[in-house]
Nucleic acid binder design. Structure first.
Lengths: 120, 120
DNA sequence: GTTATTGTATTAAGCAATTAATACAATAAC
DNA sequence: GTTATTGTATTAATTGCTTAATACAATAAC
């Protein structure tokens, strides 16, 4: 799981997304210590300030908290993390159905198209 | 059907999207003449150049063509327009399933969630 | 109590992309 | 053949993001 960016959206925003994904999928488990801002910035090949900005956003969302010199930790609350995962999924579902609606597809057609897909 | 923009993405890109949507859903029927760049720009409250840029992109995609002083017209080929609609839908499906996969949802779970939705 | 480590804040520079202002070009209409 | 209309091209201004450099703050480790 490496770091890649699209160029279409701000890097800091993509960092937020990818870090959030790692948290809700358990790559960074609840309560675990994350790497330092400088380390993560180095891995992702971005400026430390950019990584810091992403971290601030995660903190604002209550996903992580920092302890001055000890480092930064993932929230130790599996339930709220699970809730976030469900919330993110719901957002994607809503956006997806809305877009398909704009294209003129009704829900049952969408479901039919999905069931035809070959994916796991 | 008015013009609204998000601020997160370039306006010209959102114009392309919305114009394309109007074409594939028949708001601008095949072969019909569109309003002038200046008129459309005025309606959408954007700079004429921004609308022009969107138009150039639609032209590049073969959706419209321009006749110097007569104006701009929608491609007169219902089938290719229908094909585009299907293509856009497929793109959305692929992206959606990919994102849900990243969140750890398998296709059958996604379908189950969708069927639980109260939408038409 | 000193030091190293880590997070945080500030300011500015550089860069790329978008938007804006304006002028030009082609042609249908008369 | 003139003119008004429409599309097109060019250049400049603006904006926002990223990066950079640097300094400060807190505290765990020793």
């Amino acid at each position: 799981m490496s770091w890649t960016f699209s160029g279409e959206r701000p890097i800091y925003s993509q960092l937020v997304e990818q870090l959030q994904l790692r948290i809700v999928t358990g790559v960074y488990p609840p309560g675990s210590r994350m790497e330092t801002v400088r380390e993560l910035a180095n891995e992702a090949a971005v400026n430390p300030n950019t990584m810091q900005r992403a971290m601030s956003e995660l903190e604002r969302r209550g996903l992580v908290f920092s302890q001055r010199t000890a480092g930064r930790f993932v929230t130790d609350d599996p339930e709220s993390i699970a809730a976030l995962r469900a919330e993110l999924a719901q957002e994607k579902i809503d956006r997806f159905l809305g877009e398909m609606r704009k294209l003129g597809y009704e829900k049952r057609e969408v479901v039919a198209l999905l069931e035809r897909e070959e994916r796991t």
